[in-house]
Computed example of a mutant assay.
Amino acid sequence: MRSPKTGPRPLAATVSLVRAAAGEDIAGVLASVGSTPAGLSDIDVTARRERFGPNALREHRARPLRVLGRQLRARSSSCCAGRHWCRRSSARESAHSRSLSSSPSASGWAS
């Protein structure tokens, strides 16, 4: 949704409009946006295009090399984080197993 001459609406405003419309019947929603079950007339379409601009999404062209670079960076950082976690995890497990083997209950000295 676009506001006249100001660009896209903030997300919060759009969400509140959608919530309000969800509680109305079809006739109420159409009346709130100035439409009818048959749609807009050609005159209304032209006036809204002049006021709000075309009803079109901007295209986003992906650059393959940039996408590949981001994927490789993400992959390498997750691998590094995984190795770090594995090293810490194995160090904790070995320290835990050493503490269990040296405790009196683990060696059969339970009271």
Score class of each variant (00 low, 15 high):
Arg2Phe: 07
Pro37Ser: 08
Ala47Val: 01
Val45Ile: 15
Ser77Val: 09
Ile26Arg: 09
Ser41His: 03
Cys79Leu: 15
Ala81Phe: 07
Ser77Met: 13
Ser97Ile: 12
Val18Arg: 02
Ser32Asn: 01
Glu59Phe: 06
Pro37Lys: 06
Arg58Lys: 14
Gln71Lys: 10
Thr14Met: 07
Gly69Tyr: 10
Ser76Phe: 11
Pro37Cys: 04
Arg49Asp: 12
His84Phe: 05
Glu93Gln: 10
Thr14Val: 13
Asp42Leu: 11
Met1Phe: 00
Pro8Ala: 14
Pro104Asp: 15
Gly108Val: 02
Ala56His: 04
Arg58Val: 09
Ala74Pro: 01
Ala74Glu: 12
Arg63His: 12
Trp109Arg: 13
Leu57Val: 12
Arg63Ser: 10
Gly39Asn: 03
Val33Thr: 02
Ser105Arg: 10
Gly53Asn: 03
Ser94Glu: 14
Ala47Gln: 09
Ser101Cys: 14
Ala22Glu: 10
Arg88Ile: 05
Ala22Gly: 04
His84Ile: 07
Leu68Ile: 11
Ala21Leu: 05
Leu100Gln: 13
Trp109Ile: 01
Arg87Ser: 14
Ser41Lys: 05
Leu17Gln: 07
Leu68Val: 11
Arg87Gln: 10
Arg51Asn: 06
Cys86Trp: 15
Gly108Trp: 05
Glu24Val: 00
Ser35Thr: 05
Val15Pro: 02
Gly28Thr: 01
Ala12His: 04
Glu59Asp: 12
Arg73Gln: 14
Leu72Glu: 15
Arg66Pro: 09
Trp109Leu: 15
Val67Glu: 13
Asp25Met: 02
Ala47Ser: 05
Gly108Phe: 00
Gln71Asn: 08
Ser103Pro: 03
Arg2Cys: 02
Ile26Lys: 03
Asn55Ala: 15
Ser99Phe: 07
Ser16Asn: 11
Val15Lys: 11
Ile43Glu: 14
Arg2Ala: 06
